Amino acid sequence: MDETKRYFLELSYKGTPFHGWQTQENVMTVQECLENALATYLRKPTPILGSGRTDKGVHANMQVCHFDHSGLPLGENFLSGINAILPKEIAVHSIRQVRDDAHARFDAVRRSYVYRIIFRKNPFLDQLAWHCFYNPDVEKMNLAAEALLRHEDFECFSKVHTDVTHFRCDIMSAHWEQKEGELLFHITANRFLRGMVRTIVGTLMEVGRGFRKPEEMDEVILSRNRANAGKAAPAKGLFLNKIEYRKEIYLD
């Protein structure tokens, strides 16, 4: 009998047509599409588990999931085969064998998101960025973003009625980057709560528009009350950008 091996898949996807990452009844999700493609290619049901969930309409420059397979090793032929089955909005970029106990979600040490804002109409980015009609004060927004590094409980930015045991996150970096015609928000942490990044962006944009003062960010976080934070930014501007793991989990 062939030995069962565990693999990490690295993939990217355009989230526009999907109802998020996680499989749900009666809607199309990224996980379901990938599991169906694996079942077709490997000729057997192959459940996967991702590093985390992305909401409806959110994109991923890099997502990681794991699955178990018994049979011949999977390599370059697998990548071309599975990509031929997947819809055009999903692409698998690499496959690596990992330790049998490696876990795409629990072994991730850092996760990074990027939120993209544009300031003029662009038909090529319509589904990939939030088109804003005002120019915020980026200096004030960066000043407010520094508050994220001073705290660890972010219940105020989480969706309500979520199934987590605590709201603590270790945010390692958070800043805005201004480019010609666009604005990018970068944030890295060990974990994120549901809806957290979009709500942070929405709150910081209120600072940038003068509706809040930068120093009020600490008060919002300490309140632990979602009602005190801003409206969540649109999903289409958000990208899961990078997942990092310790090298020792990889076997190749």
Rank of each mutant, 00 (worst) to 15 (best):
K88Q: 10
R110A: 12
R168Y: 04
E206I: 12
R105S: 13
Y13H: 01
K14M: 09
V201G: 06
R168F: 05
L42D: 01
C156A: 14
L79K: 01
F157H: 08
I117K: 00
I90K: 09
Q31T: 03
V27G: 11
K213T: 12
P136G: 03
H166P: 01
Q24D: 14
R110D: 13
I118T: 07
R53T: 02
Q63S: 08
S70R: 11
K242H: 15
V109P: 08
E35L: 05
P136K: 02
H175V: 12
D100S: 08
F124C: 09
E216P: 14
D2Q: 14
M141P: 05
M28G: 00
R209A: 09
A144K: 11
R194M: 07
N26G: 00
T54Q: 12
E76P: 11
N26P: 00
K14L: 14
R43N: 09
N77H: 01
F157K: 06
K179G: 06
D163H: 12
R246M: 13
M205I: 13
L240R: 07
V114N: 01
E32M: 10
V220Y: 05
E180Y: 04
F167Q: 02
A233R: 03
R6Q: 01
A39E: 06
S12F: 01
G181Q: 03
L184H: 12
D218L: 06
R6W: 01
W21N: 10
C65K: 07
T165W: 00
Y250M: 12
Q97R: 12
N61V: 02
H66K: 12
L11C: 11
D218P: 09
A174K: 04
D68V: 02
G230P: 15
D153M: 08
R150A: 02
K159A: 04
K213L: 10
N135T: 04
N36K: 15
E146I: 13
H69N: 04
D2P: 15
P45E: 06
V64N: 08
C65M: 12
W21Y: 10
E32K: 14
